[in-house]
Simulated scan of single mutants.
Amino acid sequence: MNKSEDHPNELDDGLSDDFGRLIKEYRLKKGYSLAQLEDLARVSPSYVSRIERGLRSQVSFPKVLRICFTLGIPYELMISKAFGEINQSEVENENPTLEDILYHQDFTIYGKPVDLDAKEILVSTINLIFGCTWDSKTKIHDLYQVSKKIERLKDLI
């Protein structure tokens, strides 16, 4: 059994050398130290440092996503740098999803910056709204579920 079967969130195909350079370039562009990135993305400085230096070929996909979302690295660029080039014409013809826009853009609500945790709640709230049936049997339950998400979002902002 290989490592990816033991740990399904771990990618073991090997990262390209470009991926570590991409992470470091975006981190420095944002002006983040490794410790600051740890606070924002919840990934240890040594883990990020090993990726940046090309010393870590097996990575946790959720951790890599948190790093990239925090640094504002577009998903398509992350994948192409991590695992090789993708057909750019396919990427250019696709419209970004609302989820991609929310995760990759810095923005504020009432003058307060929205962090990754708040973005995750915002995205899940939107998904919940569109996933609800909103019929007479479920409307009160649906409204309650949405109100709980909104309360949590307001607590984070």
Rank of each mutant, 00 (worst) to 15 (best):
Phe83Pro: 00
Lys30Gly: 00
Pro74Leu: 14
Leu116Phe: 08
Glu90Met: 09
Gln36Arg: 13
Asp100Leu: 10
Asp155His: 09
Ser136Leu: 13
Tyr103Glu: 03
Gly72Ala: 10
Leu98Val: 12
Arg42Thr: 04
Glu5Asn: 07
Asp142Lys: 05
Asp18Lys: 15
Gly111Leu: 03
Ile101Thr: 14
Phe61Arg: 12
Leu77Gly: 01
Ala35His: 08
Met1Ala: 09
Glu76Tyr: 06
Gln36Tyr: 02
Arg21Glu: 08
Leu40Tyr: 04
Ser89Phe: 10
Lys154Asp: 08
Leu15Ser: 07
Gly31Lys: 11
Ile51Ser: 02
Asp39Ile: 07
Ile140Val: 15
Leu34Gln: 08
Leu116Gly: 00
Pro74Thr: 13
Asn95Lys: 15
Lys119Tyr: 02
Thr108Arg: 14
Phe107Gly: 07
Lys24Trp: 03
Gln105Met: 10
Glu90Asp: 11
Asn127Tyr: 08
Asp18Gly: 11
Pro96Asp: 14
Lys112Arg: 14
Lys3Pro: 00
Lys154Val: 15
Glu5Met: 13
Glu94His: 07
Asn93Ile: 05
Arg50Leu: 09
Glu52Val: 10
Pro62Phe: 00
Phe107Lys: 10
Glu151Asp: 15
Asp17Arg: 13
His7Phe: 14
Leu128Pro: 01
Ile73Asn: 02
Leu55Gly: 12
Lys112Leu: 11
Ser57Cys: 03
Thr70Gln: 10
Lys112Ser: 12
Asp39Arg: 15
Phe19Gly: 01
Tyr47Thr: 07
Glu92Ser: 14
Gln58Thr: 12
Val91Trp: 02
